[in-house]
Each structure stands twice: as structure tokens, then as C-alpha cells.
Simulated assay, not measured.
Amino acid sequence: MEYVTLGNTGTTVSRLCFGTWRFAKESDGVVETDREEAHELLDAAWERGINFVDTANVYGTPHGTSEEYIGEWLEDHDREDFVLASKVYFPFDGWGDPGPNDSGLGRKHVRAQIEGTLDRLGTDYLDLYYIHRWDENTPIRETLRTLTELVREGKVHYLGASTMAAWQLTKALWTADVDGLERFEVTQPMVNAAHYDEVGDYLDVCADRDLAVCPYSPLAGGFLTGKYERAADGSVEAPDGSRGSLTERFGEYYATDTAWDVLEAVESVADEVDATPSQVSLRWLMDQDRFTCVPIVGARTVDQLDENVGAVDLSLSDEQFERIDAARNGAGGD
């Protein structure tokens, strides 16, 4: 495993982060990853050198179960060996029907949720606490002041920001600078080779301010694994049981013309380096040189995790990296 300093912080993390959004997640009444499977995956991640684990208070059915699974597993491990990240924003269903202050980034909700998260994880502090979304109804100054208090109390080490617009991230960073508050040091947008440009302005801010980027959906919902084919009419031919077979939105959202061009470039590079498209796609993200990039992988099985971890040992030449970049920019690799 390779390790890297997380942006402008003093914390070192594995080049891949293990995501746990599938832990206890129910889909059509079926739990995607149960407690035993979750603990097996955490064992495998740790054995392969992954020390960075990502969760959220609303992961699992009911909410909070993902954090509970991780907390139970940590009882048999040294907490100091791990970098734990969680999130706050959405209504938490553990309290029944949400009330008027049971969501968002106001002081009352953030204060309540950090205590629940720490309790479920069985820890006194989080290494990284993300705002899960931007809150249009709460002044960012209130949110940052509340989060700064958590840092100064030792309950949180660093702050992060998930999906939002570039101007919102800029506003938050400016407010932190002007008011002398803790700033966001890590971001978590949806970034992958096929959809990089959709958050290009956001990533420009990250590069300029030396923020680490921990992309979710680094394989474009599985599109960049190479398991999908393009039908003659332009639609997606998806294997049974895959995400693409379960929703029509998959094709509209992930399988754009640019995405197919990128996939073609990724597959050609994979053939050249004797790797899988997934590994090439993850390595392409890790090789970003404008900012520290640590992809979040959410493997369902140990075999999938092993494939993802194989990306760490992969090397891409400048020409191979640029060929994928060219496809992303519509240059078709020329």
C-alpha cells in the first residue's frame, strides 16, 4: 500500500479510502452488506494496508447502522491506527419522524449528530467530519463556527465538504479566512475519468487552495469497470443485477458520449499494462498532480477489494495518462 499526506493536513492516509455506504443498506428488502460481511471487508481492507475509512450518520437501514458496524469492529483494533471520516446534514431516522431542527447544518443539529456518531463508532473523536451537503437555510458562518468549536474541543481533527457548487466552497473558505475559523481541508465530490469536467470549477478551487479530494463513485457507478456494452441504438447493455440493469437513469447519467470515449481509452490502456479497467481508472485518479486525490472504493466483496487495491501497484506512463485525458476532453486520443 502507498500512503500520502491528506492535502494540507498533517495526517497520512492510504492511497485508497474504504467506503461503507453499503453497510446495512436495504435494497428491495435485501441487506446489501450485513454485519458479518462488513467485518470481513474491514478485516480485508486493514490487512491490505487501508487505514482510511469513510462513513456517514445516515448510512445503513436504519440510519447509523454503518457506524455501528465499524464501531463494533474497532473494539478489537487500535483506534489510533485508523483515520475515520463521517458526515452530517440529512435527517437522521433513528429518532422517528424528523422535526424542524433534525436536519441541516444549524448548531443544534450538528451538535446532536456528532454525539451520536461518536457513540456509535465508539470513539472520542473523528479524524474528519464532512458536511454532507450545502445548507441553504443556515448561514455558513454559523456552521463553520459550530464545526470550529468541535475541532477546538478535540471531537474533530479536520473538516471536510462533500457535494456542492464551486462558489459555495469558495464562500466557505473565504468566510473561514475572514473570521479566523477552521476551514474545509478535504472535499468529497463525485469525480471519475468520465465525469471530471462536470466538477471542473470545483476542482480548480481545490487545486488553488491545496484541498485534498476524496472522490466518491470513482468508477462512475461501475461504468468504468468495462462490464457494460453499447448497443447499436446507443443504449446500455447491462449484465443482470448490475446497477445499469436496475435503473434507466444509469444510461442517462453515466453512459454519455464522452463516457464511452473515456471507457475506450481506459480499456486500451488496461490491455497495455495487463490490468483491469477499474484499476486503470483508479490509478488515473491517484495520479492527479494538481491536488492530493484519494478515491473512495466501496467494494461488495473481498475479490472486488483486491482488484481495487491492485491499482496501487499500477504505473501509467505520461502518454497513457494523457490519452485518457484527451478522451475526456473530446480529443479522441489524437
Rank of each mutant, 00 (worst) to 15 (best):
L121H: 01
Y59T: 03
P91K: 04
Q113F: 02
V110D: 14
F92L: 12
D124Y: 01
A112E: 15
Y59S: 06
P98C: 09
D93L: 07
W73P: 12
D76W: 03
T65M: 12
W73S: 07
H63C: 09
A85M: 10
D97G: 01
N101H: 13
Q113K: 08
R120N: 09
L118Q: 09
D97Y: 04
G94A: 08
E67Q: 09
G64N: 05
P98H: 10
G122K: 04
P62E: 04
G94T: 03
A112V: 02
L105E: 15
K108S: 14
D81T: 11
G122M: 07
G104Y: 14
G104H: 11
G71W: 05
A85F: 04
Q113R: 14
R120G: 00
W73R: 10
P98K: 09
G106K: 13
V88R: 11
D127M: 00
V88C: 15
G99E: 10
T117D: 02
R79A: 10
G96V: 09
Y89A: 08
D76P: 04
W73I: 06
F82Y: 14
G104I: 13
Y125P: 00
Y125K: 05
R79H: 08
Y59K: 02
W73L: 11
R107D: 13
G116K: 03
G99L: 07
